[in-house]
Design a binder for these strands. Structure first.
Lengths: 199, 199
DNA sequence: CACTAAAAAAGGAACGCTCGTTCTTCAACA
DNA sequence: TGTTGAAGAACGAGCGTTCCTTTTTTAGTG
């Protein structure tokens, strides 16, 4: 049986997914044709369809990939000494991964939000990932409350929503206007939260 | 000349635009066909194309409409007594207009962000509207600084970016997860900004 | 070690379908 | 009766997908 190794298969899937992600980040989900993805991957139609069922599956995979990068920062989030420090590290990571990946995951995230309006297969994994992040942020808030750095009567879950919301707020302005910077953003947040934050 | 009145023409354009907006908010830009929009408007293809050049123009018009609603709140923004009060009023307005309009403009806003990735004709007006809002927020920040309610060394433009960013942050969570509420969000922000904010 | 055969993967042309758009025809009103 | 808005069938392009062919790889055999 000339079966190709499983590692090779995974590699091919990755190659196709990254090619698709680059195309999506450049042109959007619906303006990129399968021909474009196929050409970007350097393969043929038959090959691509041997690894993915179709365009929808590719969109879902790309959206999932763009979002699961946030999983890397869960430990950072839980251990942040202050809201501004948390946000600063989060935004810093989000802005730097673009080079490491060859495509900008925040672009795909914005596309995924739009796609989520009508496609549950995109929305659900994204919502799950975001909810997980928020849970870790709520944990951080509880730490701050125990340390007396935040009002004890505040609802940690709700504060976490606001903290998490700073991320899409940053991304939208970065993609649409482009005049935001992680450090400045965090500094402004520090001014807003009282300025006495550590780190 | 049975020329129809100019008011009638404007009314027809509005009828078509609202129909398109409803369809877009329901299914997204690309999953709605012109047939759907035409049926929703209760007109014929020829009629619709007599008022709009094509689907792209309809998308741009819907995106512009969804965004220009923010123009109504410019006075509110400039006069807000505190960050939390500003955000509370902003989010309150954004969540209530859905009923008044027959479609949810925040859904179209999310779609417009995604479309902005590749289409400057959508991005530019949205970016302009958002920049205008931010400018008014910066003005509010300067007021707070003059009143001694905010650190004088903070950059008002940067603080305005964070304040504005709370809006897309709220919208994304509302659309994808759905467990956010304007009042609770503002309350959490109050906890984050020190809790001593007025109203 | 060489050759053969089988099996899987990659190639790529072609299909069918949907969608946006146009254009000719019809109706209404002054 | 002429002019204009509306109707709706028809067209053409572009897309995702499939399917048949070609190439490559591997296992078995003399």
């Amino acid at each position: 049986m000339p079966k190709v190794t499983e590692a090779h298969r995974a590699e091919r899937r990755e190659q196709i997914l990254l090619a698709a992600a680059r195309c999506f980040a450049r042109d959007g989900f619906h303006a990129t044709s399968m021909d474009t993805v196929i050409a970007e991957a350097g393969l043929s139609a038959g090959a691509v369809y041997g690894y993915y069922r179709g365009k929808d599956e590719l969109i879902e995979a790309a959206a999932g990939r763009a979002v699961e990068l946030l999983g890397d920062v869960l430990p950072v989030v839980a251990a942040a000494p202050s809201p501004a420090a948390l946000v600063e590290q989060l935004l810093g990571l989000v802005t730097e991964v673009a080079d490491r990946l060859g495509f900008d995951p925040t672009r795909i995230a914005v596309l995924a939000w739009g796609e989520s309006v009508r496609n549950p297969r995109v929305r659900e994994p994204v919502a799950r990932a975001y909810t997980a992040i928020r849970a870790h942020m709520a944990e951080a808030v509880r730490h701050w409350q125990r340390d007396g750095r935040m009002a004890a009567d505040a609802d940690p879950e709700e504060v976490a929503k606001v903290l998490f919301g700073l991320l899409p707020g940053f991304i939208v302005q970065r993609q649409l206007i482009g005049d935001v910077h992680p450090d400045r953003y965090a500094a402004a947040l520090r001014a807003l939260t009282g300025g006495a934050g550590t780190g």
